[in-house]
């Protein structure tokens, strides 16, 4: 297993290099003069030249790239254009928020997805199966921001129902549980829907397998057949989906953070895009890419742990 993880880490090196090339080129591919953009619209010619020199834009491209990568490795991501603070610091104070948002949302989608997926599969063809699948379709097609706004409308601002008001949760910020519930639901719903559908179809496939019949023939209780014999096998393909889903989740985090005014990476990036703060955008993309790659390594490890048929070497 250790060997596998090491090999998997080595394999990500080319991916990470690709990502840095991409973010590196991002700034250089923007139409117009990057130095002009970075120096700001009202900058004088002199200031622009100075910026060019400071950013090393006069060096040959390979040298520029090398400087950039060594910066990334040592944690020097340059300074924000807007406020001049080191980009690394800006990211550091926010990354925890975004990661915890993504983590809780993933947890929610996995939990709900599996429960509803199994529930629907066991009741294949019955009304409850159809209802769950329709609900999943809804969850899947509901735009993130819209769901967020609806939740705020009903559960933060709240409605008067009989003797109480449904404004149980808070609509902005991150930290207390009242602040966290709505964004996590907003971000986790689509994932839950996808995982539910995947779990259901995977369960249906597994439940028809010969080894399930073997378990029943042993006199195993149906509940144990479903949860011990079938589910563990059915989860194998679901795990991969969770990994891929994580990419969409990061995209969704950008929107969710803005809807709920959460001071995370996503909100930082949107602000940076609006104010053309390219060093921040560049590094934000880089961090998201690293997160995605890292999560997928974890998924691979879990996949291997579940799937005994794969030889670890």
């Amino acid at each position: 297993m250790f060997q596998f993880i090491v090999r998997r880490l080595i394999q990500t090196i080319p991916v990470l290099i690709g990502v840095t090339i991409l973010t590196f080129s991002m700034v250089r591919l923007i139409p117009g003069d990057p130095a002009q953009i970075m120096a700001g619209e009202s900058a004088s010619q002199e200031q622009i030249e100075l910026t060019r020199e400071r950013l090393g834009l006069n060096d040959p491209l390979p040298v520029q790239y090398f400087d950039y990568v060594s910066g990334v490795v040592t944690g020097d991501l340059g300074n924000s254009i807007r406020n001049g603070r080191p980009v690394a610091d800006e990211i550091k104070v926010r990354i925890g928020t975004t990661v915890s948002l993504a983590f809780y949302s993933t947890l929610l989608s996995v939990f709900l997805g599996i429960i509803f997926g199994v529930f629907a599969a066991v009741r294949r063809g019955k009304l409850s199966d159809t209802l769950v699948m329709i609900a999943a379709l809804f969850g899947l097609s509901m735009p993130n921001f819209w769901l967020g706004l609806i939740l705020i409308q009903y559960f933060a601002i709240g409605r008067d129902v009989l003797f109480f008001n449904t404004g149980w949760f808070l609509a902005s910020g991150w930290g207390t549980w009242q602040q966290m519930v709505l964004p996590v639901i907003t971000l986790g719903t689509a994932g839950a829907a996808i995982i539910a559908r995947m779990t259901r179809s995977s369960m249906l496939e597994v439940i028809d397998q010969d080894y399930i019949r073997t378990a029943r023939a042993k006199g195993v209780k149906e509940r144990i057949v479903v949860y011990r014999h079938a589910l563990k096998n059915a989860l194998i393909p679901v795990v991969t989906v969770v990994g891929l889903q994580f990419g969409a989740l990061l995209g969704g985090a950008v929107i969710t953070e803005n809807v709920f005014a959460i001071n995370g990476l996503g909100r930082l990036m949107v602000g940076a895009i609006n104010s053309r703060d390219f060093p921040i955008v560049q590094s934000g993309v880089l961090v998201f890419a690293f997160l995605f790659v890292f999560v997928n390594i974890m998924v691979d490890v879990i996949y291997r742990l579940l799937n005994k048929r794969i030889d670890l070497n």
């Binding site: 397998q209 010969d210 080894y211 019949r213 073997t214 378990a215 014999h229 563990k232 096998n233 194998i236 579940l306 799937n307 005994k308 048929r309």
Partner: peptide, 12 residues
Amino acid sequence: FQEPMTSLNPVY
């Protein structure tokens, strides 16, 4: 059963 290849649970 007939199929020894598929009649045992692969994850146990």
